[in-house]
Amino acid sequence: MKENAKKITQAHGAGGRDSAELMRDVFGKHFSNNILDKLEDGAVLPWNVAARPVVSTDSFVVKPIEFRGGDIGKLSVCGTVNDLLMMGAIPKYLTCGFVLEEGLEIATLERVVASMAATARAAGVLIVAGDTKVIESSAKANEGGGGLLIGASGIGSLRDGATPSASNARPGDAVVVSGNLGDHHACILSARMGIENDIASDCAILRETTDSLLDNGIDVHVMRDVTRGGLGTVLNEIAALSDVTVELSEIDIPVNAGVAAFCGVMGLDPLYMGNEGKMIAIVPKEQAARAVNLMRATDTGRNARVIGEILLPSERDRNLVAMKTKVGGTRRINALFGEGLPRIC
């Protein structure tokens, strides 16, 4: 049998020889580091006791497994590391659990694992523990079977003095977004619907962008990556947690022309579409211009701009998120409601 046609079977999850081979030839080969290579039941981590640990966990179920601009492996590192970054942490270690469906091609798995390892290296984190299980294929036949799910947890150390929090937005702050909205979601939807276009996922580690703000003395009140649920949902969460209202300006919301056209045809709204390499920073208005310039000097913040401001809670609708429209009216921006969208992360 040709090497690249080998598929995952229940034997790979049984803990015997096939499992060991998979560990050695796929995971060990790419993830190798001093801590993981000890092959203990748990990883003992070097730790600077002065810094407080920050922990985050996430699950990744995106279909297709590989897409333009990334794959589920890269996504799992970006998603977990970005969550740590948004807390003002320096990401250090990752653990990952792989759930493999029977029928998954081992070559596909290896591409995902290699991509995950490369992304972790670029983010400066070590993968220190992992697990693999094999399950019967649950996929619908039209999705090809042979799926792959990843659970990942990350640990980072809190930066000195950094306290960004979703409850820290204050009236008078500016809302800055790091770039165009909707790319990842439009990319995944296009792939799932067999629509050919050039839209690539924005899947990326945001470390350079968060570092540029925190290393240069910007007083960042809130940082959030704009993932599932989109900007509309994220801002509603912040408005409620910080007890403020948010006012956006429609003409300032950055959307790539191709994504805007795709959304127009599909009846989608970029405000509710998930991203995997975009964030918002809420900063004092006086620092907004500097924050934008700092972000623009980074790869993941090139199209950063101010899109709105934080206001006092309003009398009629305490934590309203509203948007000034192009014709001069106001549109209410609710959190995303209900289902109807495919799994994108």
Binding site: V327, G328, T330
Partner: peptide, 15 residues
């Protein structure tokens, strides 16, 4: 209904 949604999104009712 798509027009109804578009009208609300545009904020045109306000003006």
């Amino acid at each position: 209904g798509t027009h109804t949604a578009g009208i609300y999104k545009s904020g045109i009712r306000d003006i």
